[in-house]
């Protein structure tokens, strides 16, 4: 349970109030000799001093208006106030605890291990500098990687941040670095005429390059011809496992025969033509 945290009365025992008054007066005179005269309020005849357990940082004007009059009349007895502090359960803490408690794992015996967020306050000072450095690094890396996009004869650009088509290309490159398969900018759907035009253009460009190379005597890599069928054709569902079934007859090709019979077995060395 909470410790009784009520108001605390300070006991006011005025033992040495006589000589204390004299000392106080002397101090006041000394002070006034140096500075402006003080406007002294008489202490109330029975000072009912109430001090809160938890004293807030009061403003100066509060101090002026409050009836606090110094650590004067305590007779040295220290009153200890125990303040029971319960962990403040703010919404996020409750949410976290709920997550921990309602998960499928048994809640840990040590209680909710409250994860403290990594202390970032100390590094906050040179954080901005770090950030700037990192950003510069990134910009440099990108510039090195994508500098070919800044080819001056492709268009007029001098900015690091490429724009327009170049920007899309740069984006594609970055995505490819991150592991993307197909570029984002390729259009999946388009009219057939467009598609044909594009492929024709690509083929034409390649042909032109080869022709120019041949004319100037440059040896290029071997031309790759696209295979007609990349995958083996799917067989009909009820079709035969081997061969073709057509017109009521199953015809087996050479390849089929080979797959059935397996590779030809040759005897080792002699015995050729011997009895089998």
């Amino acid at each position: 349970m909470a410790a009784p945290t009520g108001k605390r009365k300070r006991d006011d025992s005025d033992d040495g109030s006589e000589d204390e008054g004299a000392v106080r007066a002397r101090f006041q005179r000394a002070f006034e000799a140096k500075f402006k005269p003080l406007d002294v309020r008489k202490p109330s005849p029975s000072p009912e001093l109430i001090v809160d357990d938890i004293e807030d940082d009061e403003d100066e004007e509060d101090l002026e208006t409050s009836d606090w009059e110094g650590l004067s009349d305590d007779d040295g007895a220290v009153e200890v106030v125990e303040l029971a502090v319960f962990p403040s359960h703010d919404a996020s803490a409750i949410e976290r605890e709920k997550k921990a408690f309602m998960s499928s794992r048994p809640p840990t015996l040590e209680g909710s291990a409250v994860r403290q967020p990594a202390t970032t306050k100390e590094v906050a000072a040179d954080d901005t500098e770090e950030k700037a450095n990192l950003q510069h690094d990134l910009a440099l890396q990108r510039l090195l990687k994508e500098s070919h996009l800044l080819d001056p004869n492709s268009s007029t650009r001098s900015n690091i941040n490429v724009e327009g088509r170049g920007r899309l290309k740069a984006l594609d490159l970055r995505l490819k670095d991150l592991g993307a398969k197909a570029p984002v900018s390729t259009q999946e759907k388009m009219p057939l005429a467009h598609r044909k035009g594009i492929t024709a253009k690509v083929v034409g460009r390649e042909g032109k390059r080869r022709q120019e190379a041949a004319e100037s005597g440059i040896v290029l890599e071997k031309a790759k011809f696209a295979t007609k069928f990349s995958k083996p054709r799917e067989k009909a569902i009820a079709g035969p496992m081997v061969g073709k079934f057509k017109g009521g007859t199953l015809s087996l090709g050479k390849q089929d025969l080979r797959t059935i019979q397996g590779p030809k077995q040759r005897g080792r060395g002699g015995r050729r033509g011997g009895k089998r």
């Binding site: 408690f101 499928s104 794992r105 048994p106 809640p107 840990t108 015996l109």
Partner: peptide
């Protein structure tokens, strides 16, 4: 079971990967 019985196994050295999914 999850909140009052399974945690007891910890004192017997049995604590890894215990789960009771409701």
């Amino acid at each position: 079971i999850r909140t009052a019985i399974l945690p007891l196994f910890k004192s017997f050295g049995i604590e890894r990967n215990l789960e009771l999914r409701i």
